[in-house]
Design a binder for these strands. Structure first.
Length: 327
DNA sequence: ATTGCAACCTGTCTGC
DNA sequence: TGCAGACAGGTTGCAA
């Protein structure tokens, strides 16, 4: 999927185009894209129709839109307590597109939301596009309505304007991500030290630290010069800090570039690709000289290996396999 | 607690 | 040209 930077690009697009609008119609073109909605796709249509989108929030790779119930007046957005949210996960190939209803249906269009009219903030004489389309080739992603539960950690769930201490039920097990203001590096280090596994497996665990997927795991490990099988219980605090700082800088740079588009499957809400793929140092770079080694006149090369049933990319020289490697 | 694996899907690319 | 197989940004749930 889309990992954290891609999800955040989508969140920003949705925040600008969808916040404040009423969901006037819901059309499900493929019921498999309505996930975990307890009463099924038809109830999803009924429960979502007429609600108003209050905000767009993200934690890790999960996106959600807190909703005002039909007819509820929201005079003070800070005191209104939404009871449910429209949850979305992009899976491996999900897209959220803002389009006008006059445009033809997209290939793999699964869910279509018709939105109330709203003026374009950049040009109030024009109306914004009328639809939010969920497009997903592989159907590993999906949308569903989820109750918002109080959270005991006090801070806002993910990034978003609303500071409610609530989180959707199905995002409650997701840890804070490295770009969350409340992200706690030392707390993650303490949890890492208590685990007995390899570092890459650990950073891909969304319950420990969220938002990291296969691309940014490999990029951050390369940046921090750590092998994916390094045992977590032997990490020094300095190494954990180095790794998580690498995650933060790589993700921030990716966000600035509009995300990583390896093909046309990841795009922002306007259908545009990101260009961080041009800046990848390790992921997908099999056989290329390691950029760091090359700069130092050394001969490290990027190799590809199978790990956790997926590909891992590392430098053969500056990310050597530790003797106590853990898989 | 950790780990491996299958399942959920569609599509593209490579080699025979 | 067809066909089989590998591979692709993720999450969940179950078995060992």
């Amino acid at each position: 999927m889309p990992e954290l930077p891609e999800a955040e690009v989508v969140r920003r697009g949705l925040e600008r185009w969808v916040t404040g609008r009423v969901v006037e119609g819901v059309e499900i073109l493929d019921p498999r894209s309505v996930r975990r909605h307890v009463d099924g796709p038809q109830a999803f249509v009924e429960d979502l129709t007429g609600t108003r989108v209050l905000d767009v929030v993200r934690r890790g790779k999960f996106l959600w839109m807190p909703l005002a119930a039909p007819g509820d007046a929201v005079d003070d957005p800070c005191s209104y307590r939404p009871r449910q949210a429209l949850m979305a996960h992009l899976g491996m190939s999900g897209q959220m597109l803002i389009k006008d209803s006059s445009l033809p249906p997209d290939r793999h269009l699964r869910i279509r939301l018709t939105l109330s009219d709203a003026p374009d903030p950049d040009d109030p004489s024009q109306l914004l596009p009328t639809e939010l389309r969920f497009v997903d080739q592989r159907i590993f992603g999906g949308m569903f309505l989820d109750p918002l539960l109080p959270t005991d950690d006090g801070a806002p769930g993910g990034l978003g304007r609303h500071g409610h201490a609530v989180v959707p039920e199905h995002a409650a097990h997701i840890a804070r991500d490295p770009l969350d203001p409340a992200f706690d590096v030392d707390a993650v280090h303490d949890r890492l030290r208590r685990r007995k596994t390899g570092i890459k497996r650990a950073v891909l665990d969304q319950g420990l630290v969220s938002g990291i997927g296969n691309i940014y795991a490999d990029e951050a490990l390369w940046e921090a010069r750590l092998h994916y099988a390094r045992p977590t219980e032997t990490l020094t605090r300095a190494e954990t800090r180095r790794l998580l700082a690498a995650v933060q800088t790589v993700m921030t740079r990716a966000l600035d570039a509009g995300g990583t588009s390896l093909d046309s499957l990841y795009v922002n809400v306007n259908g545009e690709s990101g260009y961080f793929a041009l800046s990848l140092n390790a992921y997908g770079q099999t056989g290329r000289a390691c950029p760091r080694c090359a700069a130092e006149g050394r001969d490290g090369v990027i190799v590809r290996e199978q790990f956790m049933n997926r590909s891992s990319f590392r430098c053969s020289r500056c990310q050597r396999k530790p003797r106590n490697a853990r898989y």
